[in-house]
Design a protein around this nucleic acid. Structure first.
Length: 489
DNA sequence: ATGTAC
């Protein structure tokens, strides 16, 4: 789909912050489209191809209820980023790599500390410099860890527990990751030789683009009860890690887009966009991709775990105490590019197991849901929303509205508002790192281009995005975090 | 997002 022009089709406001694209808009739509946004955001959203992609996704075989988009929606490969689609395998429902994203199980994790801003402000520069020295960033970078092929195959199958057993973490790191840092059904045998080769020495590296590691300070508590349960308090230092499955996940996505090219003809359906390439969940091709995708997801969790280990070592070195003494516990780790099988109400009180695609969207299970840690049973699953570099991030808690409106899903970030090339143009003659320094954020990156692409002006206002999911009752605001140091690719 | 084109 060409990335030009805005959306000119119907958009009906059906409730506060809910905009419907009726399935009568296009003959090939099987369900409505539904976008969550306020009046200001919907104006920006219409200028982009995102809504048309919501419509395209509504044509997929077996899609249930509606093709959904969160307020951080913007154009992506095939599916929009910020998109949520659930398909029913019993009705020929499909799995689509474009609905997961190239960066399989890209996600974020939040570490808390028992440090306060006053404890670190004199050492923030050496701290960020040391993080930048010790944590590999940038495209194609290799890391400090290298796994043999048999080890990597175990890592792909076992997830976080594999690297924790090697000494790079503790039991809590497993318990406080979505899905325990491991998806069942991972099949390393469905991951190509080339993907394995690319992944062998990249576990424990940050990558490029919007990936980062940030040192932050909690600047506002909105829900005191939930914050206390999550161990968050005003003035506290936190660490946010945003990365995914690196070259391994990219290669898995690319491999299966090729495999799925002939699926529409073979299984008898049509697609409005080649980039929506997909196959029935219940097909050999669909099962192969799911096995490989789960393996790549497990790799991404291991990557964030090894990044955690390295961040803890740097803090220990700079502050002269073991990380345990610095209280660097994992608050939670969420996947925001993934497909999972979950039970949901698909309308009329009918519960079914569906394949939920979340592409740039975060699971947001409510209090009492069996799949969240017992410690969070009363307050709901932590939903971690990174803002753009130089702006705030948010911690929210999943609410019952997510199960009603969005297959247990919330937004995932601020959402890009400007293309990477437009952002580079806007940064001409400027030094983004110096601009950030001037507002109290130490930024270290391998080059100017990455900083230019990720400059705050390229993104929507994360506070407005989070307001929408809070108002709809999908997830509620718990704490706002402001950055003081960031390392990037 | 990505050894930004095998």
């Amino acid at each position: 789909m060409a990335k030009t022009g805005g959306y000119e089709g119907p958009l009906e406001q059906v409730a506060p912050c809910q905009w419907r694209i009726p399935k009568t808009y296009r003959a090939d739509m099987r369900v409505d489209g539904l976008i969550f946004a306020d009046d200001a955001l919907i104006g920006q959203i219409k200028k982009d191809q995102g809504p048309e992609q919501v419509v395209n996704v509504a044509t997929l075989p077996g899609i249930q209820k509606a093709s959904l988009a969160m307020p951080d929606i913007h154009w992506g490969y095939g599916f929009c980023i910020g998109g949520v689609a659930a398909t029913d395998p019993e009705q020929g429902g499909v799995i689509s790599p474009g609905g997961v994203g190239y960066d399989i199980n890209c996600g974020v994790r939040l570490l808390r500390t028992n440090l306060e801003w006053a404890d670190i402000k004199d050492r923030i520069r050496p701290l960020v410099d040391q993080l930048f020295r010790d944590i590999p960033t940038g495209v194609g970078q290799r890391g400090a860890f290298s796994f043999s092929k048999p080890e990597l195959i175990r890592l792909l199958g076992e997830g976080v527990s594999f690297v924790v057993d090697k000494g790079y973490g503790v039991a809590r790191d497993i318990e406080f990751a979505e899905a325990g840092g491991r998806l069942d059904g991972a099949d390393p045998g469905r991951v190509s030789e080339r993907a394995i080769l690319r992944g062998a020495d990249q576990c424990g590296t940050l990558g490029s683009g919007n990936h980062f590691l940030e040192v932050q300070v909690v600047d506002r508590i909105v829900d005191a009860t939930a914050a206390e349960v999550m161990g968050l308090r005003e003035g506290q230092v936190t660490v946010l890690i945003h990365s995914g499955s690196r070259g391994l996940g990219y290669q898995v996505c690319d491999d299966y887009l090729g495999v799925f090219k002939n699926a529409p003809k073979k299984y008898g359906f049509e697609l409005p966009d080649w980039q929506l390439a997909c196959a029935p969940v219940r097909s050999p091709e669909g099962q192969d991709y799911l096995g490989a995708m789960r393996a790549a997801a497990n790799y991404a969790w291991c990557n964030r775990q090894l990044l955690t280990h390295q961040a803890r070592e740097v803090f220990a070195r700079i502050f002269g105490k073991p990380w345990e003494a610095l209280g660097m516990d994992l608050v939670y780790d969420v996947a925001h590019n993934i497909a999972k099988f979950e039970d949901h109400d698909v309308g009329g009180g009918v519960q079914k197991q569906v394949c939920v695609h979340r592409k740039g969207a975060t699971r947001a299970f409510p209090p009492g849901h069996p799949e969240i840690p017992e410690a969070y049973a009363q307050v709901g699953q932590p939903v971690i929303i990174p803002g753009s570099m130089g702006t705030a991030s948010w911690v929210l808690a999943g609410q019952p509205g997510s199960m009603i409106h969005s297959f247990g899903t919330s937004c995932h970030g601020a959402g890009r508002m400007m293309s990477r090339t437009a952002a580079i143009r806007l940064a001409e003659g400027r030094r983004i790192d110096k601009e950030l320094d001037a507002i109290g954020i130490i930024a270290r990156a391998r080059g100017h281009k990455g900083l230019a692409e990720e400059q705050p002006a390229a993104y929507k206002d994360v506070d407005l995005v989070v307001d929408v999911v809070d108002k709809v009752g999908i997830s509620k605001k718990v704490a706002r975090l402001r950055p003081v140091g960031v390392i990037k690719g």
